[in-house]
């Protein structure tokens, strides 16, 4: 009985972690900044490949994963400075531009790095509960997802950057008049989003097939979570993650992965029909 209950909780945590980690970076770039970042998957891929290259050169895995996140962040800042910053008031063009970047990166990687690499293997082994065995690393993923949410809360609510970044997103002109260097806020925020995408890739790198297009496998979940969550990362992403994880875990267990996938998409349709601004829009309206 306990094993069954643990199994359900474990599956929920696993799905929740995937949704949150996949969506965190996008929640900042798409949710807060309004840039529909079609290259989100490629930041994830960047985190994956940097991690794997570092591990292959003898760097311990946790350090390699940090490197993966940091490099994705730096690439994000460079991209923001060169391309994205010209597109803040042109949302449709930003879709096209980031999609173009995404195509160039995946195809470029396919040509330069080849179609597949050998994986690095999942660390930490397994543990047993009742008749079931579980990979211990999945608990690390869940811990990381909770950590990312807590970290974002601290960054945006408790730091000077957080206050200025939120001010910039709400009213850039006013923030600028009050002395906030808004350009820098945009660059750092985009970099933070990219780094979180990189972190997602770095964390999942040991558990998956290594191919240049693997970032795409995170895309549906990340966009669904952000759309359900709405514009506010702090209020939206976590409740969206919980809601979607419950739906998906229940349907996966009841009728397999197809039902889980269909359920995920139906949930997003229902949510944007009744809550057009997502969960966070609804919550913040209730507060007022």
């Amino acid at each position: 009985m306990f094993a069954e209950a643990f199994s359900i909780a474990f599956q929920f945590a696993d799905v929740f972690a995937f949704l949150i980690l996949a969506a965190a970076g996008l929640a900042i770039i798409f949710g807060m900044m309004g840039i529909i970042n079609m290259a989100h998957g490629e930041f994830i891929t960047c985190g994956i490949y940097v991690t794997v290259i570092a591990v292959q050169h003898g760097v311990p895995l946790p350090l390699a994963q940090a490197l993966g996140a940091v490099s994705a962040g730096l690439v994000g800042i460079a991209l923001e400075r060169t391309i994205i910053r010209h597109l803040y008031h042109r949302p449709l063009d930003s879709i096209l531009a980031t999609w173009g970047i995404s195509l160039m990166v995946t195809q470029g990687m396919l040509i330069v790095l080849g179609s597949s690499w050998q994986g690095i293997g999942t660390p930490l082994g397994s543990f047993k509960v009742g008749d079931y065995t579980f990979s211990a690393y999945r608990l690390v993923l869940f811990g990381a997802a909770v950590g990312v949410l807590a970290g974002l809360y601290l960054i945006f609510m408790r730091t000077g950057y957080g206050v200025m970044a939120r001010a910039t997103m709400q009213n850039a002109a006013m923030a600028k008049a009050l002395g906030v260097r808004t350009e820098r806020m945009y660059a750092i925020s985009f970099g933070l989003g990219a780094a979180l995408a990189g972190l997602c890739g770095a964390l999942y790198a040991p558990t998956m097939t290594l191919i240049p297009t693997m970032g795409i496998t995170f895309i549906i979940e990340s966009f669904v979570t952000v759309v359900v969550g709405g514009a506010n990362v702090l209020l939206g992403t976590a409740p969206a993650g919980i809601l979607l994880a419950i739906v998906r875990t229940a349907l996966n267990a009841w009728y397999g992965q197809i039902a889980g996938q269909i359920g995920l998409l139906i949930t997003v349709i229902i949510v944007i029909r009744i809550l057009p601004e997502g969960v966070s829009g609804w919550l913040s309206r209730r507060e007022r």
């Binding site: 599956q11 799905v15 079931y132 996966n252 397999g256 992965q257 889980g260």
Partner: peptide
Amino acid sequence: EEFIPLGVSQFGQTIQNIQK
């Protein structure tokens, strides 16, 4: 018997179903 949509990459539930 479990049919999995193309592009799915997470198999936690599948692994447990098999063990069950």
